[in-house]
Amino acid sequence: MAPEITKRRVTMRSTVVAGVNDEGKTLYQDFQAVDFVRPDILDAYVADARTRWQHVEVSDEPDAGPLGYDGPTFIPDSFDHADAGTYFPPTSGSDAEAQLVKAGDAAAIATEGSDNPVRLTDILEG
């Protein structure tokens, strides 16, 4: 039996004035971020997001996101939550863990030779 999906999709949007074109018309730039949030931290997440985004919308229906129920969760230090500052890794042996390891390896290859390469696999194994 698959675990019940309880995460919610949180979509955040803001629009800012980006400048003026040669004809004097105001140019705007839209920003959007999407995250998939566990219900136990949803209130803290939304409260924090509202301090930085003009519009914050929470889905009515559960949505586990691209990494599914087994994906990782990080609760930032700034959240008003008992687990603030905690990283919960993906479920060991899950497809989510395999996808993150693969993405981390690709990032390591892309940053090879840089002064400060970061490997997600080091985080997962550490």
Rank of each mutant, 00 (worst) to 15 (best):
V17A: 11
T15D: 11
L100T: 01
V37K: 01
V56R: 05
R13S: 13
A84L: 07
V16Y: 08
P76R: 08
G126V: 09
V46D: 10
E125A: 15
P89Y: 00
D95P: 12
L100V: 02
R38W: 07
A103C: 02
F74V: 02
P117T: 06
T111G: 09
I41C: 11
D35A: 13
G113D: 02
P76A: 06
A110R: 10
T73M: 08
A64K: 05
A98Q: 09
T73L: 09
T15V: 15
R119Y: 09
H81F: 04
A106C: 01
S94W: 01
Y45Q: 04
Y69G: 06
L27N: 10
E125T: 15
A103S: 06
A84Y: 02
I109K: 13
V16Q: 12
P66C: 08
F36L: 10
D105E: 15
R8P: 05
H81I: 02
E23R: 15
G68W: 09
L67S: 06
G24I: 12
D83E: 15
N116P: 01
S78I: 08
M1E: 06
D40K: 05
D43T: 12
A98L: 06
I41Y: 02
G24Y: 09
I75Q: 05
Q29G: 05
E57P: 03
A108L: 14
E112C: 01
T121C: 07
Q29H: 12
E61N: 11
P89C: 03
I5E: 14
N116H: 04
G93K: 00
L124R: 14
T11A: 14
V118N: 06
I123H: 13
P76L: 06
E61V: 12
E97T: 05
R38V: 03
V46A: 09
I75D: 05
V20N: 07
V118Y: 12
D122C: 06
E61Y: 04
L120Q: 10
T26V: 15
T26A: 13
F31R: 09
L67H: 08
K7A: 15
L42R: 03
Q32G: 07
A47V: 08
P89N: 00
V37L: 03
A18N: 14
A18R: 11
V20Y: 13
D63Q: 09
Q29K: 15
A64E: 12
D77P: 05
V34W: 08
T11N: 08
L67K: 06
V58A: 05
A49I: 10
R50T: 10
D122F: 04
P90G: 02
A64H: 01
T73Y: 01
V34C: 14
D48F: 11
Y28N: 12
V101W: 03
G126M: 11
F88S: 00
S94I: 01
G126P: 13
G126F: 07
D40R: 08
G65Y: 03
S14E: 08
D77C: 01
R52K: 15
